[in-house]
Design a protein around this nucleic acid. Structure first.
Lengths: 194, 194
DNA sequence: TCCATTTGTCAACGATCGTTGACTTTCTAA
DNA sequence: TTAGAAAGTCAACGATCGTTGACAAATGGA
């Protein structure tokens, strides 16, 4: 036994990983409807039947592929004077950093026409974004404030990564931080946001 | 001849209008892929073949349905101290007013997985939003400023009308104007937006 | 009234989709 | 070495899709 994992070093769930990686790539690029199981199989150089064998259905495959962890809890101990800049910096890491996967792209790409993706995306902002805002603002306002923050971040993602609006794509990281950061700051802790 | 139109008072392009209305409703609700020609035909209480007869293909039907006129040119003569509030008020009229159709919803619903819709949406913000911003700001910055404005407006539309994020849905018109207006104001003419 | 154009109906086509089951190959443990 | 499980291959199913063409009904001007 070449043990390093808990129980199974297991030979070919590398196939499983290949399928999942191919699925995440294609779902992020073309959405739930636009990426067929046959496309995923071809991308993974494998038989379409194997996709169903490893994941029971396309829905289940999508559910496995659309996993998002923004890793925001670490921001709970942040000073409220820099929450806006911190949020937008984390946003750029999530979308363009090497570590984070295409989870958010997968959700956002399909959320407009797939109710499961939409619900999952609502969960992300309800369970991951909102707690962070609640930690720096009056918890009674956290809902609205997190919603405002989400509207700006989601719109930026739409314009820059999905719609690829040229002037938004052209923005440098510093420009984004300088332009969007203050907006998020105001949404999160601004006093004029009733 | 009961002439009022140029040539044809024409009896049954009311059918044509019925089909188009049904298509706009379903495209706005379920997107390009989610609304089939058979669905549109059923919604219009008509045979699926008629949809193809009146519009040559589903693509052409979508192109006819996805027509958007934000009617922003009237804003060219606006004082730059209230451009933010003016924009967000117009936004609410477009999305919730009785006159405006579901054109924007149609585009936004499909733009993430349909390249034609994406290109059309880029056109809207390039040919309709950008000129307005260019009229109140340095034309050299108009591209970036219009992009920022678009990111906020598009994100708000996503959260409120498509994703239906509860805290964003719950916002009143006055709250939206109070929260989003200053953001748009800063994006459009703010001095710290390089 | 009659004929031609328009308008609508119906069934089917080819393609693609998710999914299934039978089959063969490969690997592993006794 | 050999039996059995695991991994992979293949063809096909039923459903849905956009689209087409043949045909019937309705309409309207001569």
């Amino acid at each position: 036994m070449t043990e390093n994992q808990p129980k199974k070093p297991s030979k070919s769930d590398r196939t499983r990983a290949q399928i999942l990686e191919a699925a995440r790539l294609l779902f992020a690029e073309h959405g739930y409807d636009g990426a067929s199981i046959r496309d995923v199989a071809a991308q993974a150089s494998i038989d379409p039947a194997m996709v169903i064998r490893y994941f029971r259905s396309k829905d289940e495959l999508f559910a496995r592929a659309a996993v998002v962890d923004l890793q925001l809890p670490a921001l709970r101990v942040i000073d409220r004077t820099a929450i806006g800049e911190t949020l937008i910096r984390r946003f750029l890491e999530i979308w363009e950093g090497p570590a984070s996967g295409p989870g958010m792209a997968i959700l956002l790409r399909s959320a407009t026409s797939n109710e499961f993706a939409a619900e999952k995306l609502r969960d992300v902002f309800g369970n991951q974004v909102r707690p962070v805002v609640a930690a720096v603002a009056d918890p009674a306002d956290a809902g609205r404030r997190a919603g405002l923050v989400s509207s700006q971040l989601l719109g930026l993602a739409m314009c820059r990564y999905l719609l690829r609006l040229p002037p938004v794509v052209a923005l440098s990281h510093d420009e984004i931080i300088q332009c969007i950061g203050p907006t998020l700051q105001r949404y999160a802790v601004g006093e004029d946001v009733s």
